[in-house]
Design a protein around this nucleic acid. Sequence first.
DNA 1: CTGTTAGCGCGTTCAA
DNA 2: TTGAACGCGCTAACAG
Lengths: 356, 356
Amino acid sequence: MAIRLKDLAHHLNLSVSTISAALQNRDDISEATRLRVFAAVKKFGYHPNSLARSLVTRKTNVLGVIVPDLSRSFFAEVLKGIDSVTSTGGYNLLVCNTEENASREEEMLRMLLSNQVDGVLLASAHEPSNSAWRKVLLGLSVPLVLIDRRLPGLNFVGGDDSGIGFEATRHLYSQGYRRIAHIAGPHTVTTAVGRLSGYRRALATLKLPLNDDLVIESHYHEESGGYEAMQRLLKLALPPDAVFAASDPIAIGALQAALEADLSLPEDFGLIGVGNHRYGRFLRVPLSTVDQQRSQIGHLAAELLLASMDKKRLRPKSILTEPKLVVRDSSNRTGVSDMLTASDGTKRNAKHAARR
Amino acid sequence: MAIRLKDLAHHLNLSVSTISAALQNRDDISEATRLRVFAAVKKFGYHPNSLARSLVTRKTNVLGVIVPDLSRSFFAEVLKGIDSVTSTGGYNLLVCNTEENASREEEMLRMLLSNQVDGVLLASAHEPSNSAWRKVLLGLSVPLVLIDRRLPGLNFVGGDDSGIGFEATRHLYSQGYRRIAHIAGPHTVTTAVGRLSGYRRALATLKLPLNDDLVIESHYHEESGGYEAMQRLLKLALPPDAVFAASDPIAIGALQAALEADLSLPEDFGLIGVGNHRYGRFLRVPLSTVDQQRSQIGHLAAELLLASMDKKRLRPKSILTEPKLVVRDSSNRTGVSDMLTASDGTKRNAKHAARR
DNA sequence: CTGTTAGCGCGTTCAA
DNA sequence: TTGAACGCGCTAACAG
């Protein structure tokens, strides 16, 4: 089929091993034969068989990436961020989509290991309470970095969810909103838990009462979830005057419901989401949001993975990107506060924190 | 390191080939030993080394995918569509991002071939006029399917761009707009060329004059491109009363400019984009668009690839998905026409057409 | 039914 | 400076 090293050797009257050495630019090969070899390579369109090579070198230069949903802009952007650093290092990406299905995830991981990937990046669909799965991951023979969703004792790169919740809530407070509700993501996802805890922490810090009626759990990625949650909130005896939505899609749904209820933002009502979706600023009411720095998450995760491939057995590390408040009309009642933070487009360093 | 077939053999006092046969569920292995083998596999956590297997079977169960930009929602959704069918067939995806860079694309393709992928899906960043590249693709030793951007003589799955341009333009006409401009994508991308030609075809069919001032080439994926193009159009002595934008991002930029110029849509001005972006309906003015059926493109491309892997040397096939008009406020002046088409959410069959 | 033998394409000794 | 021999982990003949 394709041309092999052996075929080249035959054409050049050289041995296979000589050609192999020449291709690796080893210095124990004469310049003359090196040139002959390269000429032949070009002439015959030879390209090495990575399978055979990897079989002996025990390195595939392939990394596995497992995400719950490739089409979600978050993961798409993280993936691109990952690729931008791994491809520079000569790595290829074997990409898997779990559809948020835990057993599919296990299957994909097995597949990746079968394929002898040099490392794995994983945004897990397992519930964090699943300790069996955590044990599997801890026992993995290849370096692993979790993305977006954390698990104790394992490498992790993601947003500072608690910080996100805190900042968002604090921002709404600073704009004069006092009855701040939260539409949360599913409690089975660590990011949602983190954002909720940040919200609670902020309320406590601000001496606002903690009212369970004002917290509604919803879907993360469907506008309808935010829409329905918002409708429920508005039916309350004492409805909120602001909502911190755990995601931009939730916020968009909530916005829809708020507008239909003839609320005007930001006067009557404040709203902020998370994710800094590309089109947030083009919405009916430009949407305030907290940017968790997606592509940087990808970069950092890839770098951490490459680093742990270099030096095996590093202490597990947690890297959180710094949340950046992006204030737009939906919550900007005073027209002043926080704008410094919001317009600050320069990159900041991520906050690095060793686990425990 | 990891446990090998040989190790299992040793533990079970069986030969390597027996275990191999048992794992493949071949019927010339006794049920008893089959069970023993599977028990041992589970016990030791054995998983086969795909590299070694593929080296001899000459099949990797890996497909290569090359796209210009993973973070673009179009490619992200197409990729997900691809994965949904390939993963069902037991294939893994080696995903590459070219950043719209032709030489990177060549490098990635080489890498994929080195990795012995069983097939390739490619949305090429090369200019269609580059016949050298076309020749490379024609000479490829593995099945190839082009996505989104076509090249003569090669398998292709994508939107019916000319149809998209035609439908969009015809729709604006049906809403009473008569001076219809087009903000096009780069002429180096076949989709942009197709949409432009569809626009021209529609104008000709509708007996509208073809005015070159009303066609502006822009960026495909940056709102700023549409924004600037729109500003130029509005400065014309006889500005247009409607715009067919070659993409939703262009349309969003154009919308921005139109609103800033105090135009009200759809009364003063009609606007339609392409892509049916998820958030099109949540914009300041809900955006009309033409849906090219992204995930279906992924499905069909993957199916075509798998088919051409089965029967080598099929005639090259071109599959175009049917454009679906989605009418929203930005162009809906009459409130009636085309709504049937727009609200028709049921899937239609793609139009299949053999090349030439 | 099971084991033996022979590669798959390449990298890596070690002699020559 | 080059080449022969061996092995990476596995599958696929063919014997027994």
